[in-house]
Amino acid sequence: MNVLSPDPATRAAVRQGLSVSLATGLYGISFGALSVAAGVGLLPTMALSLLMFSGGSQFALVGVVGAAGGPVAAVATASLLGLRNALYGAVVSPLLNARGWRRLAAAQLTIDESTAVAAAQPDPASSRVGFWVTGVGVYVLWNAFVLLGALAGDALGDPRAWGLDAAAAAAFLALVWPRLAPRRAQVVAALAVVASAALIPVVPAGIPVLAAATVAVLVGQLSPAVAADEETGDTADQKEAAR
């Protein structure tokens, strides 16, 4: 990895990766506290965090357990939410070109944040750096803060009092922001908002996100090819955002 290179795009990728890691890692406090409060002990909480390593799926599993749901519902909900990581894997795999154990490591580190940082970079080299810095950074910090949250639990109080739930929403918004320049992306974003908000009250957690993804697949498959200038605008904006 070329982390120490003076190349500005690579340095931007490292900077973004580290800030995403810190913001996401801190959110681990709330998962640790929530998981222990839901009756999942310290060791299962840490196993979940280290092995599953996918925030949405972890929260979903703990939510089902806390609501006295059965094991099948818990596994199904977590897997359904984890389905998007398969899409992410397909997005980042051509950028990473990893083989052997590196590919296994890359798979485990394929989450919202590492994918978003990798995909937002202007060239393959900085994409790779962005992916690994974010993936490893989030892995280390998330698990450290989950442990802290699980141990401190009540002492830290309600994570919502610290605004950590809003921080997570803002982090996702910041990640998608530079991708919203093309008209087609704006249309998909609007459809995703409507589909998600409409489905949250009527289907189990995890389905709204998948429904939004399905809408995007339909738009992507059915709409005509992108005009050349639109593509250029997209790339220029992503470069701008990578500053």
Binding site: F172, A192, A213
Partner: peptide, 13 residues
């Protein structure tokens, strides 16, 4: 690329 946008926007919502 559009799926990434939809997933992230949905996560925001």
């Amino acid at each position: 690329s559009l799926v990434t946008v939809a997933l992230l926007v949905s996560l925001v919502v």
